[in-house]
């Protein structure tokens, strides 16, 4: 009995004493729909890229029906010279061909003077690309489309080198040969 009395007495006193009510308001009483945050679309990191959004935002990045006949430097896309880059772990070979595929220029890291393991470095690839580009400009090639095949250290460097050498690159294509039902590959390396 006493307890109950005390509680009833105390409760008004407490409410008077406490001018600041730090406890949160009951959410059911003051529920506002605006307090629900919007859908979080996430922060776009460096590694995580949503290709769909890129496709939506940037047009003319990928070839279409008309891209074959669009003019680049006065030449339609389909008759631009092609720069084929063959990248392996141990070497990088760059050839410049016309649109039909006949080879006009050929350079590799080995030709450039790098020997043995030095052939398979990005620096070798870049210098090779630069020297090929300068030679190509002498021959009268200005704008090219690039086809890259294979994986290796020279993959990015060689494309970069072509640009540094002064060639204008219209497009970059990956031409790595892949098959989902290939003939039996060579036996695995024993490490």
């Amino acid at each position: 009995m006493l307890n109950v009395l005390r509680k009833t007495l105390q409760s008004p006193i407490i409410s008077i004493q406490r001018l600041f009510n730090t406890s949160p308001i009951l959410s059911t009483q003051k529920f506002d729909i605006k307090r629900i945050p919007l859908d979080d679309e996430g922060v776009q990191g460096e590694k995580i890229v949503d290709l769909d959004s890129v496709i939506k935002s940037k047009q003319n990045l990928f070839p279409t029906l008309e891209s074959d006949d669009t003019l680049f430097d006065g030449i339609p896309y389909k008759s631009l010279p092609i720069c084929n880059i063959r990248v392996t772990h141990n070497n990088t070979i760059i050839t410049l061909t016309d649109a039909a595929g006949t080879v006009k220029l050929i350079k590799s890291c080995g030709i450039e003077g790098f020997k043995n393991t030095k052939k398979g470095t990005n620096i070798a690839a870049q210098t090779t690309a630069i020297s090929l580009a300068t030679k190509a400009i002498d021959r009268g090639f200005k704008t090219v489309r690039v086809k890259v095949r294979g994986l290796g250290p020279g993959r990015l460097a060689s494309v970069k080198g072509l640009q540094m050498g002064g060639l204008e690159i219209v497009s970059v294509t990956d031409n790595t040969h892949v098959s989902w039902n290939p003939p039996r590959p060579r036996k695995a390396r024993r490490l």
């Binding site: 003319n60 990045l61 990928f62 070839p63 891209s67 990015l156 690159i169 497009s171 990956d174």
Partner: peptide, 20 residues
């Protein structure tokens, strides 16, 4: 030059390579 092809925009080869 249909699949796995990206056009270079504003001479930005790095971006195109990264996209490929």
């Amino acid at each position: 030059f249909i699949a796995r092809t990206v056009f270079v925009k504003n001479n930005n080869v790095d971006d195109a390579c990264r996209m490929v």
